[in-house]
């Protein structure tokens, strides 16, 4: 079967069918094209925006914010998660505070970030980083605590130092959870970048959304949304692709698929 040879084609069946139905609906006057521009109109808008250089600018701005914020949030989440996971003292000292802060809905920080860091880039990066931080922190913390004691003992019997155990046992052991945490962190990063861009920006896909609403241009809104979907899928696919060689040893159902 073709589905077996190119499994990703299976995933395209539903979007293509929906697109065709949508296009036909508009052509036959069943769906108002002004509010729900069909795929062909979206394609034309996207091409026009690309020719004008507009779409690239927005994509670049958003990507820069997501990736920088993701980098900051993932790095702090990993470092603090490792610290609290590995040291009981650090956990007792820091974890209650971090969990307390986590209970505040992240968007509640928006006014304060703007007040503290201004309306420009810094506050946006801070919001994205905050969104990425928590899933990564929680993932690393819990996975370190779940590392198999028996494997740690193997490291001890064969003469590893505490640092050696972290490097050669703990780190590879938590790798699968860490990568899953990075993926969910990245997903939240994309969510928070929209929030950041909606709260005031002159460029970025979030700005494009807001601009489309104010100008009554449903096509810009939909182009921005589709671009978000593509970027998110692409970035996630990159994490999956880059991490695959690191996880080849796993004996899981997923690994056998």
């Amino acid at each position: 079967m073709g589905g077996a040879a190119r499994p990703w084609l299976t995933g395209l069946i539903v979007p293509v069918l929906l697109g065709v139905a949508w296009e036909a609906g508009v052509r036959f006057g069943l769906i108002p094209g002004r509010l729900m521009p069909p795929p062909s109109a979206l394609w034309h808008s996207a091409v026009a925006m690309t020719h004008a250089g507009e779409l690239q600018t927005h994509v670049a701005a958003t990507l820069w914010r997501v990736l920088t914020g993701f980098g900051i949030g993932a790095a702090t989440g990993t470092v603090l998660g490792t610290l609290t996971g590995a040291s009981e003292r650090a956990r007792l000292l820091l974890d209650p505070t971090i969990q307390g802060v986590r209970a505040i809905p992240s968007l509640a920080w928006v006014p304060l970030f703007i007040l503290w860091l201004g309306i420009f880039e810094t506050s946006k990066l801070a919001l994205v980083a905050l969104g990425v931080f928590f899933p990564v922190y929680l993932g690393v913390l819990s996975s370190i605590q779940d590392v198999d004691r028996k494997l740690v003992e193997v490291g001890r019997v064969f003469g590893l130092t505490s640092f050696g155990i972290v490097r050669r046992i703990t780190m590879p052991a938590i790798m699968p959870v860490w990568i899953a945490a990075l993926r969910s962190g990245l997903g939240l990063g994309f969510m928070f970048v929209i929030a950041a861009e909606l709260m005031g920006a002159s460029e970025g896909l979030g700005f494009l959304l807001l601009d489309g609403q104010q100008m009554g241009r449903a096509d810009s809104i939909l182009v921005a949304m589709v671009t978000f979907a593509l970027l998110g899928k692409l970035a996630d696919g990159m994490i999956v692709g880059l991490s695959r060689p690191l996880l080849r040893w796993q004996d899981t159902v997923r690994a056998r698929l």
Partner: peptide, 12 residues
């Protein structure tokens, strides 16, 4: 050195 009840190989 030791051999345990389970092989305890490092899966990675």
């Amino acid at each position: 050195s030791a051999v345990f009840q389970e092989p305890r190989l490092l899966p990675w």
